[in-house]
Simulated assay, not measured.
Amino acid sequence: MNGELVAVVAVVALTVLFSYTNGFHDAANAIATSVSTRALSIRTALALAAAGNLVGSFFGAKVAKTVGAGIVRLPPGLTALTVVGCGLLGAIGWNFVTWYFGLPSSSSHALVGGLVGATLPAAGVVLWGGIAEDVLLPMVISPLLGFALGYLLMLAVLWTFRRGHPKKLNRGFRAAQTCSAAAMAVGHGMQDAAKSMGIVVLALVAGGHQSDWHIPVWVYFLISAVLAAGTYSGGRRIIATLGRKVIDLRPPEGFASEATASSVLYVAALGFGAPISTTHTITSAIMGAGATRRFSAVRWGTAGNILGAWVLTFPAAGLVAALFSWPLVALTT
């Protein structure tokens, strides 16, 4: 029992570290457009991200259950906790690699890939049907929706305000971005804070400390605080990529991107409990909004690098997790 308690604490600690690296990526994405268009200062944006993540996490129970119960099935005990820990190590490793190169990869897919990779050497059950329906299908649909809706919303903005004065419009949309950035932060909490909470609950269930998928209140506050800390310490690399290297964002495009991405996140979390990527959604929405200026305005070379990171995320995190899981699981069985 003591060994299992130590393992539970270790998994929770690794989940905290994963959430911290997630702050580099997805939490930074939630505020990147507002910071890049100078609608919000970095301090204000970080405070907004912290508050939004906390609020959104309370609406992410469906996503948390999908991640905790719908990806893999493991028997309770030390082996299950070891597998979850190895899955987190795979996701954390990939997050650090992509953060170093400033690529906004998906922490969500790194987490799922890590869990799958760690489960296979342990002879656990991978719920491939659930992964296909709840992860892979939304992984394809959400960026396509983000691009298309971002493009259409930006067209509507351009047509509606076609006679407006540019300086006045920029000031107005900077003010509007306060609302859209808050919506993004809440949407991020529904998704990414919820995913980490699902892993903590999975560890508690596997360790025999609770029997259902209820999320303790302390988990909400812990994960939200760690996400905010990660964003503050390392989010500037990702903010620079989304705000300047993909396209030089202006306030109207920033507003259209955030409004689009937050809408997609809400529908996925509240309607389907699907753990979609905040990264994929906001990045594709930025590209869609920017493409209304002209397609060449989007730096497609940078976009191609980001796409490459997206494709590699699932298998790369899974491979790293499997390399950890294979020897460690052998020691616990």
Rank of each mutant, 00 (worst) to 15 (best):
I215T: 08
E4K: 09
S211L: 15
M190D: 01
S107I: 03
N2R: 14
A47M: 14
T66W: 14
Y266V: 07
L103S: 02
R171T: 12
E133M: 13
G90R: 01
C86S: 10
I282R: 03
P143E: 14
Y100D: 10
L222E: 15
T302V: 15
T79V: 04
V226F: 03
S296I: 14
A193C: 11
A289T: 13
A61M: 10
L222C: 15
T66Q: 13
T37I: 10
A28D: 02
T333Y: 13
N305I: 10
L149Y: 00
S57R: 04
K245N: 11
G208L: 08
D26R: 00
G164M: 08
L158N: 08
V200Q: 03
A122C: 04
I71R: 04
L265F: 05
S233F: 15
F221L: 15
G113N: 05
L40H: 00
V55E: 05
V9C: 06
I71Q: 10
G93N: 06
A185T: 15
L158R: 07
K168T: 03
A289Q: 08
A291I: 07
L88V: 07
H280E: 10
L14M: 09
T283Q: 09
V205E: 08
L152Q: 07
V329Y: 02
L265W: 04
T98P: 00
A50T: 12
I131E: 01
A50S: 13
A39H: 00
L312K: 06
Y266N: 06
V72G: 10
V201M: 05
N53P: 06
H214A: 13
T231P: 10
S180H: 02
A64I: 10
L328D: 01
A185E: 13
S224V: 15
I286F: 05
F173E: 01
T279F: 07
A194G: 05
T241N: 05
G308F: 08
L120M: 05
G56Q: 07
V11L: 00
L149V: 03
S211F: 11
V201I: 06
V186N: 06
H109Q: 10
L319V: 12
R162T: 15
G308Y: 09
G68S: 12
Y100V: 13
T98W: 00
F18G: 02
A269R: 01
G189F: 01
Y232Q: 14
E4F: 06
G130M: 12
Y220P: 11
A193T: 03
D192S: 00
F59R: 08
F101G: 10
K65T: 15
K245L: 09
G234L: 07
T241S: 05
R293A: 09
G164C: 07
G114P: 00
P75A: 14
T302N: 14
V140L: 12
M154L: 14
G93R: 02
A49K: 07
I199W: 03
V219T: 12
A27C: 02
L155P: 09
H109G: 04
S263H: 04
P143I: 13
M197S: 07
V35K: 06
V200L: 04
T292W: 07
V246D: 08
A91Q: 03
S142P: 11
G235S: 06
G308C: 12
